[in-house]
Amino acid sequence: TTVHVNGVTYHFPNPEEAKKFVDRVVKEAGLTVEVKGNQWDVE
């Protein structure tokens, strides 16, 4: 699973890890998340 955060790419072994990361980032920074298949874009 690939997560893009403001142009930076993070790779995770599974969607659960990616979701935990995204949830944390979104809570801390108040960002928006767009999910496209296995790819997350966070802005």
Results as ranks from 00 to 15, higher is better:
Thr1Leu: 10
Thr1Phe: 14
Thr1Tyr: 14
Thr1Met: 08
Thr1Ser: 05
Thr2Pro: 01
Thr2Tyr: 13
Thr2Trp: 11
Thr2Cys: 15
Thr2Lys: 05
Thr2Val: 11
Thr2Ala: 05
Thr2Asn: 03
Thr2His: 11
Thr2Asp: 04
Thr2Arg: 04
Thr2Ser: 09
Val3Asn: 00
Val3Ser: 00
Val3Asp: 00
Val3Gly: 00
Val3Gln: 00
Val3Phe: 01
Val3Leu: 03
Val3Ala: 01
His4Ala: 08
His4Asp: 05
His4Ser: 13
His4Lys: 14
His4Gln: 12
His4Leu: 14
His4Asn: 12
His4Phe: 13
His4Glu: 10
Val5Phe: 14
Val5Thr: 02
Val5Trp: 15
Val5Cys: 14
Val5Leu: 12
Val5Glu: 01
Val5Arg: 02
Val5Met: 10
Asn6Met: 06
Asn6Cys: 15
Asn6Gly: 07
Asn6Arg: 04
Asn6Pro: 02
Asn6Gln: 05
Asn6Phe: 08
Asn6Val: 02
Asn6Asp: 06
Gly7Asp: 03
Gly7Val: 01
Gly7Ser: 02
Gly7Asn: 03
Gly7Ile: 06
Gly7Pro: 00
Gly7Leu: 01
Gly7Arg: 01
Gly7Glu: 02
Gly7Ala: 01
Gly7Gln: 01
Gly7Thr: 01
Val8Lys: 14
Val8Trp: 05
Val8Pro: 01
Val8Glu: 08
Val8Gln: 07
Val8Ile: 11
Val8Arg: 11
Val8Asp: 05
Val8Gly: 03
Thr9Ile: 15
Thr9Leu: 09
Thr9Met: 09
Thr9Lys: 11
Thr9Val: 14
Thr9Arg: 09
Thr9Glu: 14
Thr9Gln: 09
Thr9Phe: 08
Tyr10Trp: 03
Tyr10Asp: 02
Tyr10Met: 04
Tyr10His: 12
Tyr10Val: 07
Tyr10Ala: 04
Tyr10Cys: 14
Tyr10Leu: 06
Tyr10Gln: 03
Tyr10Phe: 06
His11Thr: 06
His11Leu: 05
His11Ile: 07
His11Trp: 15
His11Asn: 04
Phe12Cys: 09
Phe12Ile: 00
Phe12Trp: 01
Phe12Val: 00
Phe12Gln: 00
Phe12Glu: 02
Phe12Thr: 00
Phe12Ala: 00
Phe12Leu: 00
Pro13Lys: 09
Pro13Val: 07
Pro13Cys: 14
Pro13Trp: 06
Pro13Asp: 14
Pro13His: 09
Pro13Glu: 14
Pro13Tyr: 05
Pro13Arg: 04
Pro13Leu: 12
Asn14Gln: 01
Asn14Val: 01
Asn14Tyr: 02
Asn14Pro: 00
Asn14Glu: 03
Asn14Lys: 01
Asn14Met: 01
Asn14Ala: 02
Pro15Lys: 08
Pro15Asn: 09
Pro15Trp: 15
Pro15Ser: 11
Pro15Gly: 06
Pro15Ile: 14
Pro15Leu: 13
Pro15Cys: 15
Pro15Asp: 13
Pro15Val: 13
Glu16Ala: 09
Glu16Leu: 04
Glu16Gly: 04
Glu16Thr: 07
Glu16His: 05
Glu16Pro: 00
Glu16Arg: 03
Glu16Tyr: 05
Glu16Gln: 07
Glu16Met: 06
Glu17Gly: 02
Glu17His: 03
Glu17Ala: 09
Glu17Ser: 07
Glu17Asn: 02
Glu17Phe: 02
Glu17Arg: 01
Glu17Cys: 09
Glu17Lys: 02
Glu17Val: 04
Ala18Ile: 02
Ala18Gly: 01
Ala18Tyr: 02
Ala18Gln: 01
Ala18Leu: 04
Ala18Trp: 02
Ala18Glu: 01
Ala18Cys: 08
Ala18Ser: 01
Ala18Phe: 03
Ala18Asn: 00
Lys19Asn: 05
Lys19Met: 10
Lys19Ile: 05
Lys19Gly: 04
Lys19Glu: 07
Lys19Tyr: 05
Lys19Pro: 01
Lys20Glu: 11
Lys20Gly: 03
Lys20Val: 06
Lys20Ala: 11
Lys20Phe: 03
Lys20Pro: 00
Lys20Ser: 07
Lys20Tyr: 04
Lys20Cys: 14
Lys20Arg: 12
Phe21His: 01
Phe21Tyr: 02
Phe21Lys: 00
Phe21Arg: 00
Phe21Cys: 03
Phe21Ala: 00
Phe21Asn: 00
Phe21Pro: 00
Phe21Gly: 00
Val22Leu: 14
Val22Ala: 05
Val22Asp: 01
Val22Arg: 05
Val22Asn: 02
Val22Thr: 03
Val22Cys: 12
Val22Gly: 02
Val22Lys: 04
Asp23Phe: 01
Asp23Arg: 02
Asp23Met: 03
Asp23Tyr: 02
Asp23Gly: 02
Asp23Ala: 04
Asp23Gln: 04
Asp23Lys: 03
Asp23Trp: 01
Asp23Cys: 12
Asp23Val: 02
Asp23Ser: 03
Arg24Met: 13
Arg24Cys: 15
Arg24His: 09
Arg24Asp: 07
Arg24Asn: 10
Arg24Gly: 08
Arg24Thr: 10
Arg24Leu: 12
Arg24Gln: 13
Arg24Trp: 14
Val25Asp: 02
Val25Pro: 01
Val25His: 06
Val25Gln: 04
Val25Ser: 03
Val25Tyr: 12
Val25Asn: 03
Val25Arg: 02
Val26His: 08
Val26Cys: 15
Val26Pro: 04
Val26Leu: 15
Val26Ala: 12
Val26Lys: 11
Val26Thr: 13
Lys27Trp: 06
Lys27Ala: 09
Lys27Val: 06
Lys27Cys: 13
Lys27Asp: 05
Lys27Glu: 05
Lys27Asn: 07
Lys27Leu: 10
Lys27Pro: 03
Lys27Arg: 12
Glu28Gln: 09
Glu28Lys: 09
Glu28Leu: 11
Glu28Cys: 15
Glu28Trp: 05
Glu28Val: 10
Glu28His: 09
Glu28Arg: 07
Glu28Asp: 09
Glu28Ile: 10
Glu28Phe: 07
Glu28Thr: 09
Ala29Phe: 12
Ala29Asp: 07
Ala29Glu: 09
Ala29Tyr: 08
Ala29Met: 14
Ala29Thr: 14
Ala29Gly: 13
Gly30Asn: 08
Gly30Ile: 06
Gly30Phe: 07
Gly30Leu: 08
Gly30Trp: 08
Gly30Asp: 06
Gly30Gln: 09
Gly30Val: 05
Gly30Lys: 06
Gly30Pro: 05
Gly30Cys: 15
Gly30His: 09
Leu31Thr: 10
Leu31His: 09
Leu31Ala: 13
Leu31Met: 12
Leu31Gly: 12
Leu31Glu: 06
Leu31Gln: 08
Leu31Cys: 15
Leu31Phe: 12
Thr32Asp: 06
Thr32Phe: 04
Thr32Pro: 07
Thr32Gly: 09
Thr32Tyr: 03
Thr32Asn: 10
Thr32Val: 11
Thr32Ser: 10
Thr32Ala: 12
Thr32Gln: 12
Thr32Arg: 10
Thr32Met: 10
Val33Arg: 05
Val33Ala: 08
Val33Trp: 04
Val33Glu: 07
Val33Met: 07
Val33Thr: 07
Val33Asn: 08
Val33Tyr: 04
Val33Gln: 05
Val33Lys: 05
Glu34Phe: 01
Glu34Thr: 15
Glu34Ala: 11
Glu34Pro: 07
Glu34Trp: 00
Glu34Met: 07
Glu34Lys: 14
Val35Arg: 07
Val35Met: 08
Val35Cys: 15
Val35Lys: 08
Val35Phe: 05
Val35Glu: 07
Val35Tyr: 06
Val35Ile: 13
Val35Trp: 04
Val35Gly: 07
Val35Asp: 06
Lys36Gln: 13
Lys36Gly: 12
Lys36Ile: 13
Lys36Pro: 10
Lys36Arg: 13
Lys36Glu: 12
Lys36Leu: 13
Lys36Cys: 15
Lys36Ser: 13
Gly37Arg: 04
Gly37Gln: 08
Gly37Cys: 14
Gly37Thr: 09
Gly37Glu: 10
Gly37His: 08
Gly37Pro: 08
Gly37Val: 12
Gly37Tyr: 10
Gly37Lys: 08
Gly37Ser: 06
Gly37Met: 10
Asn38Gly: 11
Asn38Glu: 12
Asn38Pro: 14
Asn38Phe: 05
Asn38Val: 04
Asn38Ala: 06
Asn38Lys: 04
Asn38Cys: 15
Asn38Tyr: 03
Gln39Trp: 15
Gln39Tyr: 14
Gln39Glu: 12
Gln39Leu: 11
Gln39Ile: 14
Gln39Met: 11
Gln39Asp: 13
Gln39Cys: 15
Gln39Ala: 10
Gln39Gly: 12
Trp40Ser: 09
Trp40Val: 12
Trp40Asp: 10
Trp40Asn: 11
Trp40Gln: 10
Trp40Leu: 11
Trp40Cys: 15
Trp40Met: 11
Trp40Ala: 11
Trp40Ile: 14
Trp40Pro: 11
Asp41Pro: 13
Asp41Ser: 04
Asp41Val: 15
Asp41Gly: 09
Asp41Thr: 11
Asp41Tyr: 15
Asp41Arg: 04
Asp41Phe: 15
Asp41Trp: 15
Asp41Ala: 06
Val42Cys: 15
Val42Asp: 12
Val42His: 10
Val42Ala: 09
Val42Glu: 12
Val42Gln: 10
Val42Thr: 13
Val42Ile: 09
Val42Pro: 12
Val42Trp: 07
Val42Gly: 12
Glu43Trp: 03
Glu43Met: 13
Glu43Tyr: 10
Glu43Leu: 14
Glu43His: 10
Glu43Phe: 10
Glu43Ala: 09
Glu43Gln: 11
Glu43Gly: 09
Glu43Lys: 10
